[in-house]
Every structure is written in structure tokens, then in C-alpha cells.
């Protein structure tokens, strides 16, 4: 127990040693999490957008190839997905 207290006391310099490690942990950890979450967000948006436009392209290709009475529900869903994926698409980029 005394050893543990001595360890955390850092020879009387606890107020300088621990904040140093704390600053490094907070700044590096914070940036890491921010980059990680940004990556996941952007890749998810991309996947939705690709699924949407890809789906629409497939439907259009099917329509062009002559199969008229095709169920356009797929296209409608793709449009909705695209609209969900682009919530800020109204304003200037």
C-alpha cells in the first residue's frame, strides 16, 4: 500500500508527471477516436450512396433492356436511401 502511495506521489512531483501523461492520453486518444468515427461515418455514407446509385443504375438498365412491367419499388427505395444519405444536399457545398 505504501509502495502504491509512493508511486502515485512521484517523489512529490505528482502534479507534474501525471498531468503530462494525462494530456498525452486525452489529446492522442481524442484525435484517434475522432478520426475513427469520421472514417466510419464517411464510409457508411459512401456505402449507402453507392448502393442507392448502383441500384438505380441497375433498374434503369433493366428498363432499357425491355422488361417493362418491372417493380419500381427498388428504384423508389434507392431514391429514399439517397435522400437519407444526403441530408445536407440542399445547401451550397
Amino acid at each position: 500500500m505504501e509502495q502504491l502511495i509512493a508511486f502515485f506521489d512521484m517523489g512529490g512531483y505528482a502534479g507534474f508527471v501525471w498531468p503530462s501523461y494525462g494530456v498525452a492520453a486525452v489529446v492522442m486518444g481524442g484525435l484517434f477516436v475522432a478520426v475513427w468515427r469520421g472514417l466510419r461515418h464517411d464510409e457508411r455514407v459512401l456505402a449507402r450512396l453507392q448502393a442507392a446509385t448502383g441500384g438505380r443504375r441497375r433498374v434503369r438498365a433493366a428498363e432499357e433492356s425491355g422488361s417493362r412491367g418491372i417493380d419500381t419499388g427498388g428504384a423508389r427505395m434507392a431514391d429514399q436511401a439517397a435522400a437519407r444519405a444526403t441530408p445536407d444536399s440542399g445547401g451550397p457545398a
Binding site: D42, L46, L49, Q50, T53
Partner: peptide
């Protein structure tokens, strides 16, 4: 960089 590539693709698609 992976994030930036994804973001660039999103911009192109939009």
C-alpha cells in the same frame, strides 16, 4: 487517408 478517399468519393457521387 481512408476517410478522405471515402469523402472524396461521396463528393463525386453527389
Amino acid at each position: 487517408i481512408r476517410r478522405e478517399i471515402a469523402a472524396a468519393k461521396v463528393r463525386t457521387l453527389r
